[in-house]
Design a protein around this nucleic acid. Sequence first.
RNA 1: GGGCAGGUGGCGGAGUGGACAAUCGCAGCAGACUGUAAAUCUGCCGUCCGUUGGGACUACGUAGGUUCGAAUCCUACCCUGCCCA
Length: 318
Amino acid sequence: MSKIVAIVGPTAAGKTEVAIELSKQLSLEIISADSRQVYKYLNIGTNKPLGKWSNYNGEIVYLYKGIPYHLVDFLEPDQQYDAGKFFNDSTWLIKKISNKGVKPLIVGGTGLYIKTLTDGISLLPARDQKLREHLMNLASSYGKDYLFNMLKQLDPVRASQVHPNNIHRIIRSIEIILKTGKTFTELIKQHPPIKNFDILLIGLYLNKQQLVQRVHLRTKWMLQNGMLEETQELISKGVSEKSPVFSSIGYNWVIKFLKNEISFETMENMIIKDTLAYIKRQITWFKKDNRINWINCDGLTLKQITRNVLNIINSNPQ
RNA sequence: GGGCAGGUGGCGGAGUGGACAAUCGCAGCAGACUGUAAAUCUGCCGUCCGUUGGGACUACGUAGGUUCGAAUCCUACCCUGCCCA
């Protein structure tokens, strides 16, 4: 097992630039753990590091500021990505990069994706879109209680863990049973999470005021630098408004603005609001993980933060 | 100066005699999370006490009044918006 560094934290805390700085100093390759930046064409709205697919030692990789940046900008918007795929892709990449004698650096704010690496993930069936649509139809015909009762019958233990209103998780649990004949509860027992790597978690945080200010600035910037055009292009490409990519923060409000349903100001405020709510959820997720080595970035320069990261790395056994 | 509409919790906005500490939305706070996770979902949210059931106090512009009982009815005043002078 080799120890791999992962930089985590809420959106707008400045993870990307720190990761780049660190990678330059230590010659690392970055693996992104971000559920939205995987998509092509969603550049501005997802705050994707704007790099370029380039030839890098004979391979075509996404380069940002000269550093290979993996698992970014590779999926078509009509395709689905999920934690399981991330687990497979990142595991494969970590091995591949390590085999070259280079160290990978994980960076991202998608807590569940990070968790698949720090704690592993059980071997469970992949999502079945058709089955899900079928279950969703049942829910809309007979009410959401119908599915919850179904789950109660099939897997009472799981039903006691899932809130009756949480339709996504109810469907997922039923899906597992229908696909495998076994309950979520049984499968988790049979297939404990697979943990392949030792991860050193480093978290970046800023005080609330600073995060709020950054989100304001960044939202303004996005709206002035192509988020509207980007959304327009996705729509003219035929990407459905219901597509999962548009569940990314901001795009739904941009669509409303483009349709003249809301003012520019409303759009901007709503995006800020949603981003801050997301940040709150991220903080809730990460703060319960006491393995994270937190760095308070308030008032620190990029160099200072990077130095702090290096100190943490050096004081941990390799 | 006259007419009309209105003043409710941090904001928006219901309620128009008792079931009102006051629907709901927003903001705020706390939380859950094993293949949609930028997703999905939950709890709290006047103050104080209690783990819960619950209790005490202060509150619907201000001051009075009617009533067993008022955010709700009456009177005066203050303020805001619109309209006519």
